[in-house]
Nucleic acid binder design. Structure first.
Length: 430
RNA sequence: GCGGGUAUGGUGUAGGGGUUAACACGCCUGGUUGUGGCCCAGGAGAUCGUGGGUUCAAAUCCCACUACUCGCCCCA
């Protein structure tokens, strides 16, 4: 093995896998546009401060040094984005989108960086498809975001997904809940695993996430956030559920669903899939009404989700769902002998200009026709256009179908139209 | 940061102290003068992860390291 390898936690997306990506991203983008979302692209790098204020310096991503942060010579500190939302809200504020017709509905796609220990379905660079609705408090906005996630999965043919929903409250009611939870857990401290004791001290909500033995029973009797929501949050949650019911969208209320980033308010949700290793969430999202203010803008509500493409691909493979095969060029231009190469090159470009996919056989020295035929076969080519000296002297090309049809000779000048007609005919026949 | 597993041609594997390290797939070239898939015949390609040790002899045994991988934490 050569001592050449990609950096830890990085992935090469080979052509074979890449067409999953094309399909997934295309499907997601089509769907998003149908909902009225517009594509936006923002930089991979932001000032570190943005994430510090957005995610909170107490958040795990920040505290555990999971960010790729670079100190610039001039003293600035910049960071490879560990998530999309903060950057998108920054873009909203900076570009004056607050004065656009509200709400502003955006989607984007690109790489995200977190310096974690890699494992199945978790990489240091991963790609997310992300949508956000900014400037809207209506629970129907939450609904749209959630349904976009669900319908996206349906469009891919995904099966066995569960929709996990919870409300995480707001600054008005969350502290009261945390206090109640703390009290309860402290009373049962003897039953807590060491990890959970640590969490209790550091971030009590995280205990809800615990996978330790016996926690299911213990937490079943723990205070539930639902009973502590303020009027506003409760109404919002109830309205959202009514809307989900109206669309007959099933979901599981998961009072243990908490998310790692501090800015979430009210709605939080995840979409879980099976068979992709220990990482089961392919979507995660929620509402973040306080984020814009936290990063220094005027108060702007928002709701959105991020979807991990690598995990979606893992899940699709697990379920044996394959994307439609990408089209390969239907013809290969083969040539041998004399001045045929020049004619072949000209023909190939002429076909491409006419909109016909053409692969040109390369041959530095003499190369047998057999070898060129083999090449065509390997690439699933439908027609080999053979330019030999005999054909060329008559201004013709031999057309050899690889699917069993008869070989014919067609005048070079007529080839583009002839091929177009053939391809159209074949397509019509399926 | 903490655990477990693995490390042999491009890929997937077999082997197991002793002269040319095996197999499959892939790749290349041929199988009569210019024609694919199947088949057949050849060929290229590996300092058996790295460094040390034991031994007359190490890919094989021992130790360390590194990398990859899976899991914990956390998250998409």
């Amino acid at each position: 093995m050569a001592n050449l390898q990609r950096a830890k936690g990085m992935q090469d997306v080979l052509p074979e896998d890449r067409h999953y990506w094309d399909w997934i991203v295309q499907t997601a983008a089509d769907l998003a546009r149908r909902y009225g979302f517009q594509r936006i692209d923002i930089p991979v790098i932001e000032y570190t401060d943005l994430f510090a204020r957005g995610m909170g310096t107490a958040s795990d991503v920040f505290v555990q040094k999971e960010m790729y942060t670079i100190a610039e010579p001039d003293g600035a500190s910049i960071t490879l984005r560990p998530e999309f939302t903060a950057g998108l809200v920054r873009a909203y504020i900076q570009n004056g989108m607050g004065s656009w017709p509200q709400p502003v509905k955006l989607f984007t796609f690109g790489p995200i960086f977190r310096r974690e220990r890699p494992q199945a379905g978790r990489y240091r660079q991963h790609s997310q498809f992300d949508i956000e609705i900014l400037g809207e408090t209506d629970p129907a906005a939450d609904l749209e975001v959630m349904m976009a996630a669900m319908n996206f999965c349906r469009a891919l043919g995904y099966k066995g997904l569960t929709f996990q929903l919870n409300s995480t409250g707001c600054p008005a009611c969350k502290p009261g809940y945390i206090k109640a939870l703390k009290t309860y857990l402290a009373a049962h401290a003897d039953k807590l695993a060491p990890v959970d004791k640590e969490r209790l001290a550091k971030n009590p909500l995280r205990v809800l996430d615990s996978k330790e033995k016996g926690m299911d029973e213990l937490l079943a009797d723990a205070p539930h956030i639902i009973d502590y929501l303020c009027q506003d949050c409760e109404t919002h949650f109830a309205d959202l559920r009514l809307l989900l019911d109206a669309l007959e969208q099933s979901y599981a209320i998961n009072f243990r669903l908490v998310r790692g980033i501090d800015y979430y308010t009210k709605t939080v949700f995840e979409v879980w899939a099976e068979g992709i290793g220990a990482q089961s969430a392919i979507f995660g999202g929620g509402r973040y009404d306080g984020l814009a203010e936290a990063i220094g803008g005027s108060s702007t509500p928002g709701v959105g989700f991020g979807c991990g493409i690598e995990r979606v691909v893992l899940g699709l493979k697990e379920q044996n769902i394959a994307p439609p095969q990408p089209d390969m060029p239907p013809v290969l231009v083969a040539h041998f002998g004399g001045a045929t190469k020049t004619a072949a090159v000209q023909l190939a470009f002429q076909l491409r200009a006419a909109g016909i996919g053409a692969r040109l056989a390369f041959a530095r020295a003499r190369r047998s026709l057999k070898s060129q035929m083999r090449e065509a076969n390997k690439h699933n080519i439908r027609y080999v256009l053979i330019l030999g000296e005999s054909e060329l002297s008559e201004g013709m090309a031999a057309v050899r179908p690889l699917d069993g049809g008869e070989q014919t000779r067609i005048p070079l000048a007529e080839l583009p139209n002839w091929l177009k007609a053939e391809i159209r005919r074949q397509k019509a026949e399926g």
